[in-house]
Design a protein around this nucleic acid. Structure first.
Length: 584
RNA sequence: CGGGGCGUAGCGCAGUCUGGUUAGCGCGAGUGGUUUGGGACCACUAGGUCGGGGGUUCGAAUCCCUCCGCCCCGACCA
C-alpha cells in the first residue's frame, strides 16, 4: 500500500472528546471515525487490524473444534420471547417493527438464535459436544458509550456457543476454551490480560470468567492477591476480614447529639468506624424496604446485595419508608426491629463482631456493645451473607495477603450457561438411553474492536500505538526521503516491489514529505518495523532500519540484505506473541 | 435516567458576559515557488445553515424560549 493513497487522515491534534490513549490515537492515526455516539466507521487501517484479530480468533476457535456460522443481526422478537429475555432485557435491546408490524430486534447476543440452530441440527448425543461460533455485528443501545472503541453501541463480536450432553463435558470443554482465550490474547499482543472470576449477571449460569486487559482507563475493578492465586471482579470479590471477638459487654445507651453518620459517631465516641455498625436502607422494585447492616468502615456492594436478595433493581429508600419500619434515620439499628416483617440482610462483619456501636432507634442516641447473637431479635429470619465491598489492602480470602486493586478492560468472557436457554427453548437431544434431554451450554465472547483498543492502551508511547507484529496494519513501513531525486525514487520503488514480491505486507510512504512529517505519521501508524531510504543511506548502499519501540535509535543495514533481514525481524517479533508460554 | 460541560471551516480554538459593518486565528487542504533527517518557509486560493427551530430587536454567533447532538461523572450493562 502506498501511503499517498491510504484513506484516513492523520491529525496533528485530537478532537477534544478523546481522552484515553486508544481513543486519541485511533482518531489521530486515521483508524476510525465517529458516526454517532458509540457508532464508528473503521477506516482501512482499523479494518486491517481487526481483520488480523478476527483471523486469530478463527484459528483458535477452529482449534477447539469450533465451526463458523453466521446468524442474522435482525431477529424476530418471538425467538426472544421463548427464552423470556424479550420481556426481561431493558432498553439496551433495540426493538422495532418491520413493515408488517411484526416485532423485531437487533441482536445484542445470540443465544436464542444459536439455540434455534442447535435444536434443529443437533438431535443425537452422537453429535455432541459441538461448538458453533460467528464473528458478527452486535448492537446494544448503551446508555453511555465511552472512550472511543472501549464502549460502543455497535461492534463486532466473536461469539461462540458450545453444546454438551453432560455438565462434566461442559466443564472440560470450558477449560479448553479458557486455554484458547489465553492463547488468543497472547497472540494479539496484550501484555497483561487476566482471567478473573466474575458475576455472571443476567447471563445466568454458575461459573464464568472475564478476561481483563489491565489498563488504567478500564471500567472494571479487579482485586488480585500479589501471588496471583486469587483475582476477582469487584462485584464478587471477597476478603478475609478479621472481626473483633471480645467478651460481650452489656448494652448501654449513650447520648450522641446530632451524630447521624458513622464518621460523626466514631469521632464523638472516640472509636474507630470499625467499632460501629452502619444501617443502610434500600428499596426493591416493589418499593419494599430492605434493611442492610454492615460494619461501619465497610461499604455495601450493591451487586452482591442484588444477587443475595434476588432483586435486579434496588435503590436507596427514602426517610418515609425507613420511619414506617419503626426506625429512626441516622440512628437506626436492628434493636427493636421485627425481622419477620422487614427484609433484613446482615453482613458477617456485623454478625461476627463483638460490642459494636449501633443506633438506638431513638433520636440523638446510640447503643454501645451490640452483639448480634445476643441482641438481634428474630435472628432466624435474618439473612446473613457477605455484601461488603472489598477495599484495596483487605486480606486475600486464600492467602491473607493484602489485595491489590487493578483496573481492567473486559475484552472477553466465558460462561457455563447450563440449561438456561436450552431448557425453556426445548433445545433437546436424544441420549443413549433414548430419552430427550436439554443440552448443556457454554458461551464465549470476545469484542474485536475493544480488543484493538485495549492493545493500544497497553502498547503505545507519546507518539502513537506500537502495534504487535501479529495484528499490525502492515509489517514494514518504508519511507523514502528526498524521493524527488530520481535515483532515490527508483531505489524505493524497487525495494517496495521486492518486499511485496517476498510476501511482506509493506506500507510505502512515497509522498516526498519532510523527514519529521513522515516520521510523525509513521509513529501514528505504529508499524513495528521501519525502513528509511535517503540519498545519504543510498550513497553507502544502505538502508536505515528501526523498530517502532526503539525511540530515536536506528541502525544501518546493507541494501542488498534487506529482504532476509526484514523476514527475520518479522519472525522474531511474531515469536513475542506466540501462545506457547501462557501467562494468564 | 440523574449531575456537569460543550456545540463557531476537516481538526484545535477566539469572539458570546457588555447585541452593531465584510465572523477571526492556528493546523489541515489546493496552486506556485523556495526547502528537505523528527510535524519547514513565502505568496495566493478555496472552505462557515455560528447545532436546529421559534422569539425579542432597526440589527442576534452574542439576549430569551425550545428542541437536538456530543463529551465527562454517576446509575444501568449479555
Amino acid at each position: 500500500m502506498k501511503l499517498s493513497q491510504l484513506v484516513g487522515q492523520r491529525l496533528k491534534e485530537a478532537p477534544r472528546d478523546a481522552q484515553t490513549a486508544s481513543h486519541i490515537f485511533l482518531i489521530r492515526g486515521g483508524y476510525v471515525r465517529l458516526v454517532s455516539a458509540g457508532l464508528y466507521t473503521l477506516l482501512p487501517l482499523g479494518r486491517r487490524i481487526t481483520r488480523k484479530i478476527e483471523q486469530i480468533l478463527r484459528e483458535e476457535m477452529d482449534r477447539v473444534d469450533g465451526q463458523e456460522i453466521r446468524m442474522p443481526v435482525v431477529l424476530p422478537a418471538e425467538l426472544w420471547e421463548e427464552s423470556g429475555r424479550y420481556a426481561k432485557v431493558g432498553s439496551e435491546l433495540l426493538r422495532f417493527k418491520d413493515r408488517n408490524g411484526k416485532d423485531m430486534l437487533l441482536g445484542m447476543t445470540h443465544e436464542e438464535a444459536v439455540v434455534q440452530v442447535a435444536r434443529t441440527e443437533l438431535v443425537s448425543y452422537k453429535q455432541l459436544p459441538s461448538m458453533l461460533y460467528q464473528i458478527q455485528t452486535k448492537y446494544r443501545d448503551e446508555a453511555r458509550p465511552r472512550a472511543g472503541l472501549i464502549r460502543v453501541r455497535e461492534f463486532t463480536m466473536k461469539d461462540a456457543y458450545s453444546f454438551h450432553g453432560s455438565q462434566d463435558c461442559l466443564e472440560k470443554y470450558y477449560e479448553r476454551c479458557h486455554e484458547a482465550y489465553v492463547r488468543i490474547f497472547k497472540r494479539i499482543g496484550l501484555k497483561q490480560c487476566l482471567s478473573i472470576l466474575s458475576d455472571s449477571g443476567m447471563m445466568g449460569g454458575a461459573v464464568s470468567h472475564e478476561f481483563m486487559a489491565i489498563a488504567d482507563c478500564g471500567e472494571d475493578t479487579i482485586f488480585a492477591s500479589p501471588d496471583g492465586s486469587y483475582r476477582a471482579n469487584r462485584e464478587v470479590a471477597v476478603a478475609k476480614l478479621a472481626f473483633a471477638k471480645d467478651a460481650p459487654l452489656p448494652l448501654n445507651k449513650v447520648h450522641t447529639p446530632g451524630c447521624k453518620t458513622i464518621a460523626d459517631v466514631a469521632a464523638f465516641l472516640k472509636l474507630s468506624p470499625a467499632q460501629t455498625c452502619k444501617a443502610v436502607f434500600y428499596k426493591d422494585q416493589d418499593n419494599k424496604l430492605v434493611f442492610v447492616c454492615i460494619r461501619g468502615d465497610l461499604e455495601v456492594n450493591e451487586a452482591k446485595l442484588r444477587k443475595a436478595i434476588q432483586c435486579p433493581e434496588i435503590d436507596f429508600a427514602n426517610d418515609e419508608l425507613i420511619r414506617a419500619a419503626g426506625t429512626v434515620p441516622g440512628f437506626a439499628s436492628l434493636l427493636g426491629i421485627d425481622a419477620k416483617k422487614i427484609r433484613v440482610v446482615v453482613d458477617p462483619s456485623v454478625s461476627e463482631s463483638s460490642n459494636l456501636v449501633v443506633g438506638a432507634n431513638e433520636e440523638d442516641h446510640h447503643m454501645l456493645n451490640f452483639n448480634f447473637a445476643r441482641d438481634a431479635a428474630g435472628r432466624e429470619h435474618i439473612m446473613i451473607t457477605d455484601i461488603a465491598t472489598v477495599r484495596e489492602g483487605d486480606p486475600c480470602p486464600l492467602t491473607g495477603q493484602p489485595l491489590q486493586a487493578l483496573k481492567g478492560i473486559e475484552v472477553g468472557n466465558i460462561f457455563q450457561l447450563g440449561t438456561k436457554y436450552s431448557a425453556p427453548m426445548a433445545c433437546n437431544y436424544l441420549d443413549q438411553d433414548g430419552k430427550s434431554k436439554p443440552m448443556i451450554m457454554g458461551c464465549y465472547g470476545i469484542g474485536v474492536g475493544r480488543a484493538m483498543a485495549a492493545v493500544i492502551e497497553q502498547c503505545h508511547d507519546d507518539y502513537g500505538p506500537v502495534w504487535p507484529m501479529a495484528i499490525a496494519p502492515f509489517q514494514v513501513h518504508l519511507i523514502g526521503l528526498n524521493i524527488n531525486q530520481p535515483e532515490v525514487r527508483q531505489a524505493c520503488d524497487n525495494l517496495y516491489q521486492s518486499l511485496l514480491d517476498a510476501g511482506i505486507d509493506a506500507l510505502y510512504d512515497d509522498r516526498g514529505e519532510k523527514a519529521g512529517f513522515a516520521f510523525a505519521d509513521a509513529d501514528l501508524i505504529g508499524v513495528p518495523l521501519r525502513l528509511v531510504v535517503s540519498p545519504k543511506t543510498l550513497a553507502q548502499s544502505q538502508v536505515e532500519f528501526k523498530q517502532r519501540n526503539w525511540g530515536k535509535r536506528s541502525e544501518l543495514i546493507a541494501l542488498d540484505g534487506v529482504l532476509p533481514f526484514v523476514q527475520q525481524q518479522i519472525q522474531e517479533l511474531m515469536a513475542l506473541c506466540r501462545p506457547d508460554t501462557p501467562t494468564a
